[in-house]
Design a binder for these strands. Sequence first.
DNA 1: CTACTTGCAAATGCTTTGCAGGAGA
DNA 2: TCTCCTGCAAAGCATTTGCAAGTAG
Lengths: 152, 152
Amino acid sequence: MARSADTDLHTLVEVRLRRVDQRYTAGRRAVVAALVEIDEPASIEDLARLCPGLARSSTYRHLADLQTAGVVRRIAAEDGFGRFELSEDITEHHHHLLCTGCGRVLDITPSPSFERNLTNHLEELARAQGFSPRGHRVDVLGICGSCAGSDR
Amino acid sequence: MARSADTDLHTLVEVRLRRVDQRYTAGRRAVVAALVEIDEPASIEDLARLCPGLARSSTYRHLADLQTAGVVRRIAAEDGFGRFELSEDITEHHHHLLCTGCGRVLDITPSPSFERNLTNHLEELARAQGFSPRGHRVDVLGICGSCAGSDR
DNA sequence: CTACTTGCAAATGCTTTGCAGGAGA
DNA sequence: TCTCCTGCAAAGCATTTGCAAGTAG
């Protein structure tokens, strides 16, 4: 799609990996490309499918390294298995819809004014318990369109 | 503390277990009592400590049964391990502070007006993607008081 | 008596790690 | 060449399950 944006992304990833003495190899490119491609938090299965020929263990290791480099974030889905997405400073701040039927995760982006309100409220509540907030996440639990369709 | 409230809680749990043909046995009472006692989402380790003599496998089974009965809810903590708490219709709707230092989870309760605003916004965003919302959760990630203290 | 419970040990399945050969700079 | 990367196989570890004895009603 947007070739220049992709180029920038890969350059950014490369720079961040270098910071932690890591190289941006073909395997890692494949993982990053898959995360861009799928455009929603990916399970290990998703990545295995999109990165054929890449060993599972390597996938896990790449994800760990990319997390260290600040490129990838791991999120905990309702089913307990790991999901991975590009970090928010690369994409944009957003939240998730979690389907309790199939475990799928979709993205949502609230309005800036809503986010501001949310952040302020949460900051206040956290401070009141001696907690230093670094960020937040909001998940909506429910049933996705395809599960609702196949149910009935 | 509140004896009558505790009595009511146990009666409620018993009724809900009966609905799914389960008995409210000593082991299950111990798990429920531990969840009340600790007053924050409990790890399996927490429960093992508070329920000495109860086998791990039984703890897991009790938690599964209590979830089926609608008494307990499992939440996914940042560290990937399971945490368990009483369901919200027994306690009250609330959200969580997750310490990225030690994995601890604390509760926070936003104001009703904030909750209303939040719920409405999320409902709108979810519907826009063909998603039927059933509930939501908000987590604040950061550093708890004791981790901040021991760090420096 | 009949059905649900529970401890113990074995099994599962996602995730991590040791090791040795490969590849980038 | 020195260091980092990666596949394969083995290990780890939280969680689940088979089984047989225990217990509630």
